[in-house]
Nucleic acid binder design. Structure first.
Length: 940
RNA sequence: GGGCGGUUAGCUCAGUUGGUUAGAGCGCAGCGUUGACAUCGCUGAGGUCAGAGGUUCAAAUCCUCUAUCGCCCACCA
């Protein structure tokens, strides 16, 4: 695409290439793995974003990291699958669509389940494509032909199969338990979906008079006075002397005049409040458990919509917080309120809509999770699954340890409907049927709901009941019939009226199956056989419990194997002020806007370079600018390289020839060192570090030095460097490609266009081989020698800058070097001349006369002394002061080294190579001190 | 109440089995448009690695404590 220099504009322009290039890759089928049973595949399943959502920077980070891993493995030759997908996101989506409809004056309850679901599907069709487009813009090389949606037939059947298996083995059960209820969403939530936060509240002390006529009362302390209407006991600690005589007595609840007992239960903390605890079994988990122990009745007073129900007597119909106000003032007016304290407590909120959760007793489906958790913990403990970074292993195991049963039913419409049916003929009295439209009841009045049995008595046939039923509420003793594809008959009574449970499953239930349900399980699918277990599961640490832990539990249960080998947890992306990004804060950055401004490669680099797993990242505009600037720098370096191929006419082949020139040996050696290092870092999941190493090599060594050194030789007609300019750049962009796919591809194409041998038979960098190297190949001599040349150039530049020598003025330089550097400096004299603007460079021999120290600026490096006579610019006093300071520093270092090496402990205990290194440094420092002293002596 | 993490240059962050004089980007100061690149080049300033103690020949790195910010988990009304 970019075959001429003219086409390679002076600046990297992502907009010009990205979209076309993505399509070009996709058309060639690069995103699809080949199935090769001789090879171990590399598989990543993408965390499915909300199908109707917009990608935020967290997703962009996910995509950047996963794409880097995937592209790296693909280039290594592994059959590589990155499977994308989306999640139906039960509550979130239903909530959004419901609000949308409400804004049009439509109430979902009025239009009914079927109509509502049609609206949601329409919504999905309308907004569902955004995610895929955004991933394409991010350059994500995922296999769109295998894209899955949680509500697709395959994953849906996997959900039902899992439910049935767990039910049949007794690990899914239906029962009446205390659950977290969201009065806004009208559904149960799991413990994880309830977020607790501290809130300023009050502790009300309420008097309950004894019924013995003594006129005495017991005082209870509560943060939720409105629940007193549902109290069925007051509990005290059996060891509490204050209440020793009270147990067994009864008290009377104000206004509603219910008589309730005082019971003894050691759950009660004598230190807290008054030592007497009001017990509301229907609206508090602990109270429920106390109630169970003592056989107390659970009286519900707060209804599903958060208003007080008929059991609330005079307060019925009030909203729960309005009721609290009202009850407190009534109690106070009637003298039942002893006192009020300020109190900090924790309130649970719905993680989607922030409504305060109401603990509520209801019939739900649960997973008996402890046995699954035990196996899931074991898989991590024994190393079958590795978590990166490792510290999350403890968090994970701790969570598994104290896990409670998982409430999986949701009173929503959008999601996987629970595959459980109830038989009207068997459980007629236990099934409350809510009708889609009213029928005429026996009394001539419209009838909206009735038990199945009652409807039969009216004369409806089973078929008619099924057809008219909008939903069924089965009581806790009803017997569900659970089947993957829906039962056609009741096992007890044959063909009958079967009514499906109205609830859907927790979204995370289906997400928990994602690694195997997307690959075809429970069928014996080829993808499943080949690609499962997957390799790496990459996601944010914030959904370790929600998702990762559940995938491990469900994966082990369903497949008998771990779902993935490695869990890589990235940190959260925050804004420049380290605030969490959220819609309500209004600080979300749209990845597409960043891409438009800086380019995809720049955004990806900003999100990943020099980051470390599990640590949060504040994404600043500066990081993105740095990414853009690097892409541009690289692009321009490539322009120079391309140009040098054309103008030199050098024939460049596929492999770099064995280098003979020191500078060429140096860059090849450094390239190999970087290649080996990068591979090692990638193996160890240190992606950010690997990226940093590549960037530093390309900018600080290749562009800043090798290109500049090569220019000098090329100018003199030496075409040898061209092969290394091309070869080193080509190999470097291959190293970088997983991180910055677009700019590296364009550069690679431009290089291949000029040196077709580089392609090595492939059409794209994406499918070229990832570079490998052996650290043992390093050319230490050339690295040291070119290092000396670079240091000399730097020293001269430094002297020029300090002496304020005008750029246009060429200067003379004398160099006194030891044998190691002398030849290298002599050989590179022209380069030094050009790069440091030196007109004449003299490498001094043993008996050559040194220039007058009073008129030179001197830089003393390891093994090299650089002297720049700057007539009229050198202040002998200043020079003396500078050298004296340097002498002090060097001597200080020398003293340290002498002490260390004089220490017997160091000599005997430190590894030999460390000792040798220190000795080398000692010798260098000594020599340097000598030379500084000598120079000072000559200065007088 | 338990547990985890951060604290390194003005800002954002690297620094993985303890081993040269602790690094980068941005910012800052000075200089610089000769054909790869001003989205750039050159030079430089800037850090007692939160604090204290300990282990060690050697500590930003390991241990203990403290401070501070943040996160996770937990049934105290």
């Amino acid at each position: 695409m970019t075959n001429t220099i003219a086409e390679m504009a002076a600046a990297w322009d992502p907009a010009r290439f990205e979209e076309a290039r993505y399509q070009w890759w996709e058309e060639r089928g690069y995103f699809q793995p080949r199935i090769d049973h001789e090879q171990q595949p590399f598989v990543v399943i993408m965390p499915p974003p909300n199908v109707t959502g917009q990608l935020h920077l967290g997703h962009a980070l996910t995509a950047s990291v996963e794409d880097a891993l995937v592209r790296w493995h693909r280039m290594r030759g592994d059959p590589t699958l990155w499977l994308p997908g989306t999640d139906h996101a039960g509550i979130a989506t239903q909530y959004v669509v419901e609000n949308h409809l409400a804004s049009q004056g439509i109430d979902r309850r009025e239009i009914g389940r079927q109509k509502f679901l049609e609206h949601v599907w329409e919504w999905v069709r309308e907004y569902g494509g955004a995610i895929q487009n955004q991933h394409r813009r991010l350059g994500a090389s995922c296999d769109w032909t295998r894209e899955r949606f949680t509500l697709d037939e395959g994953p849906s059947r996997a959900v039902r199969a899992t439910f049935v298996n767990l039910y049949e083995s007794g690990r899914i059960y239906r029962g009446e338990r205390m659950i977290n209820w969201c009065p806004t969403d009208h559904t149960a939530l799991s413990d994880l979906e309830t977020e607790y936060e501290d809130a300023a509240g009050k502790l009300w002390h309420i008097n309950y008079p004894y019924t013995d006529g003594s006129g005495r009362h017991v005082t209870v302390a509560t943060t939720r006075p409105e629940t007193y209407l549902g109290d069925t006991a007051v509990a005290v600690n059996t060891n509490d002397p204050r209440f020793a005589d009270a147990i067994g007595l009864t008290v009377r609840l104000p206004f509603i005049d219910r008589e309730i007992p005082i019971i003894g239960d050691d759950y009660v903390d004598m230190e807290f409040g008054t030592g007497a605890l009001k017990v509301t079994p229907a609206h508090d988990q602990n109270d429920f458990e106390i109630g169970q122990r003592h056989g107390l009745e659970a009286i519900e007073v707060i209804a599903a919509d958060g208003t007080l129900n008929e059991n609330a007597g005079p307060f019925a119909g009030l909203e729960r917080f309005a009721a609290r106000q009202s009850i407190v003032s009534e109690l106070e007016a009637a003298g039942f309120l002893e006192r009020t304290e300020e109190y900090q407590n924790r309130v649970g909120r719905c993680y989607r809509c922030q409504t305060i959760i109401e603990p509520r007793l209801s019939i739900q489906w649960f997973v008996d999770i402890a046995p699954l958790a035990e196996r899931a913990a074991e898989a991590v403990r024994d190393g079958r699954i590795r978590i990166v970074p490792e510290r999350f292993t403890g968090t994970y195991l701790n969570w598994m340890d104290g896990i409670r049963d998982w409430c999986i039913s949701r009173q929503l419409w959008w999601g996987h409907r629970i595959p459980a049916w109830f038989c009207g003929e068997c459980d007629g009295d236990r099934l409350q049927i809510i009708l889609g439209e009213a029928i005429t009841g026996p009394d001539g009045q419209p009838l909206w709901e009735a038990t199945y049995s009652q409807l039969r008595e009216i004369g409806l046939t089973p078929e008619e009941i099924v057809a008219r039923a909008d939903r069924v509420n089965a009581d806790k003793d009803a017997t569900p019939i659970v089947a993957v594809d829906g039962p056609s008959a009741c096992p007890e009574c044959g063909p009958a009226a079967l009514l499906q449970d109205p609830d859907v499953l927790d979204t995370w239930f289906s997400s928990g199956l994602w690694p195997h349900s997307t690959l075809g399980w429970p069928d014996d699918a080829e993808d499943y056989r080949y690609f499962h277990p997957t390799s790496v599961l990459e996601t944010g640490y914030d959904i370790l419990f929600f998702w990762v832990a559940r995938m491990i539990m469900m994966g082990l249960e369903n497949t008998g194997d771990v779902p993935f080998r490695t869990v890589y947890l990235h940190g959260l992306v925050r804004d420049a002020q380290r605030q969490k990004m959220s819609k309500t804060r209004g600080n979300v950055i749209d990845p597409l806007e960043s891409i438009a401004e800086y380019g995809t490669d720049a955004l990806r680099m900003a999100l990943t370079i020099a980051t470390t797993p599990g640590n949060d990242l504040a994404l600043t505009p500066g990081r993105m600018e740095a990414g853009r600037n690097f892409a541009n720098k690289l692009w321009n370096a490539a322009r120079f390289v391309a140009r040098s191929v054309e103008t030199s006419g050098a024939a460049v082949g596929g492999e770099m020839p064995e280098p003979s020139h020191r500078e060429d040996r140096w860059i090849v050696s450094r390239l190999n060192g970087v290649t080996a290092h990068v591979n090692q870092l990638l193996e160890d999941f240190q992606l950010g570090q690997a990226e940093q190493v590549i960037r530093d090599f390309l900018w600080d060594e290749f562009a800043d030095w090798y290109i500049e050194l090569a220019k000098v030789r090329i100018r003199n007609g030496d075409t040898a460097p061209v092969a290394y300019l091309v070869g080193a750049l080509e190999q470097s962009v291959r190293l970088l490609h997983p991180f910055m796919p677009f700019v590296t591809e364009e550069i690679w194409q431009s290089l291949v266009a000029r040196a077709p041998g580089l392609a090595r038979g492939v059409e794209s960098i994406m499918v070229s081989a990832y570079p490998q190297a052996d650290v043992g190949d390093a050319d230490r001599a050339s690295e040291a020698e070119v290092g000396d040349v670079i240091n000399v150039v730097r020293a001269i530049r430094n002297a020029r800058a300090e002496g304020n020598v005008e750029h246009s003025r060429m200067i003379e330089v004398f160099v006194d070097a030891d044998t190691r550097s002398r030849q290298a400096i002599d050989d590179s004299r022209e380069a030094i001349g050009t790069l440091a603007r030196v007109s004449s460079l003299r490498v001094l021999e043993e008996d050559d006369e040194r220039p007058d120290p009073a008129s030179v600026m001197t830089a003393i490096l390891d093994g090299v002394t650089v002297m720049a006579p700057l007539a009229g610019l050198v202040d002998a006093d200043a020079e003396r002061a500078r050298l004296t300071k340097e002498l002090e520093e060097t001597q200080g270092r020398l003293t340290g080294l002498e002490q260390r090496l004089g220490n017997e402990g160091f000599r005997s205990k430190a590894p030999a190579h460390v000792v040798a290194k220190e000795e080398e440094r000692l010798a260098e420092s000594r020599q340097r001190v000598e030379r500084i002293e000598e120079q000072l002596a000559r200065l007088g």
